[in-house]
């Protein structure tokens, strides 16, 4: 069945709440994305990602909640290269943050600072620890 057929649309309708929640939380109109891939080509961290940023955008458009299981959302460091380059004016970093927040708000912490050995804590600057806590713990 071709894309955009009744079947696909119905699927989209069913999964709409997730897409709407991401839109609301990120403030970005994910529907604007036309999958050019500029975000993915400029992203310095794709080597570590399981999904390309543009794939994440597509999954959000389709309302596929499984995108929350992806490693990508935790790898994004909010460097905003995608924000500068997106021809559709989408701040992809905001979408990534919304996805992280959806997970973090369910009593989930991506990392635990308790597990860092003292020698690392002695060495790491506050700026690294504070940003890490803010990005990866709820």
């Amino acid at each position: 069945m071709p894309l955009g057929s009744g079947e696909t649309l119905r699927l989209g309708e069913k999964l709409k709440p997730f897409r709407e929640r991401v839109k609301e939380l990120s403030g970005e109109d994910v529907g604007l994305c036309y999958q050019c891939g500029a975000c993915s080509s400029g992203c310095p961290l794709t080597d570590e990602m399981d999904l390309l940023p543009s794939t994440v955008m597509r999954m959000v458009q389709l309302g596929v909640e499984e995108v929350l299981d992806s490693k990508t959302i935790w790898i994004c460091s909010s460097c905003f290269t995608c924000q500068v380059r997106c021809p559709r004016g989408i701040d992809v970093a905001n979408v990534m943050e919304a996805l992280r927040q959806l997970v973090l708000r369910r009593k989930y912490d991506r990392v635990s600072i308790d597990l860092l050995p003292p020698e690392e804590l002695r060495e790491l600057p506050q700026i690294a620890l504070v940003s890490c806590q803010r990005k990866l713990t709820g």
């Binding site: 310095p44 080597d47 460091s77 460097c79 290269t81 690294a128 620890l129 940003s131 990866l136």
Partner: peptide, 20 residues
């Protein structure tokens, strides 16, 4: 000159950050 240095990933993914 404006590419990410690895940022806070230096805490829990230091090797990946070091590569950047």
């Amino acid at each position: 000159k404006s590419r990410c240095c690895g940022a806070y990933h230096t805490v829990f993914m230091k090797e990946e950050a070091a590569e950047l």
